[in-house]
């Protein structure tokens, strides 16, 4: 070993790149992915919104309607670019407390961030002629990537 550093991720990119991470994370968590056109019946569902701490969805021509909807059982998760340009998730569902919905939202934010950083690191290191030697998912759901440069 020679150096170990711990990094806090920044999720800054265009909507298509973030959407790719959302779809990857959703698949891993067992959610189905729908476009913004998914119509939801108006019900008295609780809703809790969680914001990505360090995020920015770079505005582009497709800025309007930047939203993906994930569903699993009675849970609906909307992932969208808020009015400040940040990425946010809104979790709704029946039979869940606010605390449970908040926890689910935080879990979704974490997994999308993980997928986004994985995609970015692997893509950028390959562009720099890096060779991925090994990839694995650890018991705690962390993803380990070993790269030779």
């Amino acid at each position: 070993m020679s150096a170990i550093i711990v990094l806090t991720p920044l999720v800054v990119s265009s909507w298509p790149v973030i959407a790719a991470a959302v779809m990857g994370a959703a698949a891993g968590m067992g959610f189905s992915v729908h476009g913004p056109e998914l119509h939801e019946e108006p019900t008295r569902r609780k809703k809790v919104t969680t914001e990505f701490e360090n995020s920015e969805v770079v505005a582009d021509a497709m800025a309007a309607g930047q939203k993906l909807i994930l569903t699993k059982g009675d849970l609906t998760v909307e992932v969208f670019r808020d009015e400040r340009g940040r990425c946010s998730v809104c979790v709704s569902g029946t039979g869940h407390s606010d605390r449970e919905l908040k926890k689910i939202g935080e879990e979704v934010v974490g997994r999308i961030t993980q997928q986004f950083i994985y995609n970015k690191v692997v893509t950028e290191l390959k562009q720099r002629k890096g060779q991925v030697l090994e990839e694995e998912v650890l018991a705690d759901q962390s993803v380990r990537v070993r790269v030779r440069l």
Partner: peptide, 8 residues
């Protein structure tokens, strides 16, 4: 070699 671990 770079060992990268991305937590959940």
């Amino acid at each position: 070699e770079i060992d990268i671990v991305i937590s959940k």
